[in-house]
Design a protein around this nucleic acid. Sequence first.
DNA 1: ACATACCTGTGACTTTTGGCACAAGTGGTC
DNA 2: GACCACTTGTGCCAAAAGTCACAGGTATGT
Lengths: 212, 212
Amino acid sequence: MKALEPFYQQMGIREPALRQAIEKHGFVTAHVAQERLIKTGEYIKVLKILLQGRVRVFQESEDREILIYYLSQMETCTLSLSACFGDCQSTVSAIVESNQAQVLNIPVRYVTDWCHQYPSWNHFTIDTFRHSYQVLMESYSMLAFKTLNERLWEYLTNNACPSTNNVVLMSHQQIANELGTTREVVSRLLKKLEKQQRIRLGQKSIQIIYSS
Amino acid sequence: MKALEPFYQQMGIREPALRQAIEKHGFVTAHVAQERLIKTGEYIKVLKILLQGRVRVFQESEDREILIYYLSQMETCTLSLSACFGDCQSTVSAIVESNQAQVLNIPVRYVTDWCHQYPSWNHFTIDTFRHSYQVLMESYSMLAFKTLNERLWEYLTNNACPSTNNVVLMSHQQIANELGTTREVVSRLLKKLEKQQRIRLGQKSIQIIYSS
DNA sequence: ACATACCTGTGACTTTTGGCACAAGTGGTC
DNA sequence: GACCACTTGTGCCAAAAGTCACAGGTATGT
């Protein structure tokens, strides 16, 4: 499977036997935009590694949502990894954001076995946890100590695309879902930022103005 | 070191060579109440495993604090574990809550080496991450979707000691520091709960009343 | 008994966030 | 053009959380 070469590279997976095992037991699936890869409450039976595309992983509660993280090319869903080590239900949902996505699926039992057999797989596992833990920690801290206004500004600056003039292409509702709040609140805070000349608002587009 | 036997048991550490290595390179330190084990911003050079006592791990920001987790007997500080795999500064503080505490310290480089050498150590590492990740996830979700009132009630019921008539022995300030808010807010919410006959208030003590 | 430090309660007010309702704009499609 | 789904703006009000200020209680040490 040539599609896996970049993944091997990125993760430092070298052992030929491991590569063979991945190719034997893993299978690649293709998905379209908006498709749900994981639903809250579902039992997780395979580890999902995103080969191509972009996936949003979030928690939901009644009518609210909050972002946990995005998966980009060659990233692993930490939560499905976590689930592999003790079979449990998912507490999150995952949805395809890009036009299409390619996912490498690995049945759970191999995931744990390989940790013992292949150092590079083990390293990959630990590293995934470590990274995710730190990211979640940072989010937790932001949520606890920062106002929505600050979190919004941070979100915008982190997601503004420099190649398109620092624009974020999202609706207010989408942003509200990232931050765990409601549309009206986001609309109002954005309006305030616009009055302060820190952003320019358009249809589904927010341009960040860096005065510096 | 006989003090380590319960730790070995609990973590399933069997390999004699590993036990020897732990006893050779690890060292046990004793601490008193209120002592700081880790300070925010500090570089972490040893993995800390709590053999005895109780330690509070929390984040702070200006005049606020929020609980990350408690360490009890035989538990490992996940954050120091995380730090072992890529040297970085601590984003949290840890403080001894019990009268005294005993900590097993293991220099970082062994922590990573042993993962490759000893299956049970590796298992211990992954399990620690997995567990902590789930706990943090749950906290994150609570913080995002629940009101302070709900979080307070949950905190009280989780921390009420059944052996002492469901009493929580803490000041309002301490509770505020667990939940990431201020003393006055906690005082008022507690008063409201008392009026609803769900708790009884005393000096540094809150008794939960289960009407069921 | 007095000083001191900490703990609790609460009034008054502000800021932040959320919820409801409705108006108007945008962009597609049939 | 008519219809539809989605998007944005905003007035109005309510709930949740935070801030400031101060009074009085409790516990402890000298």
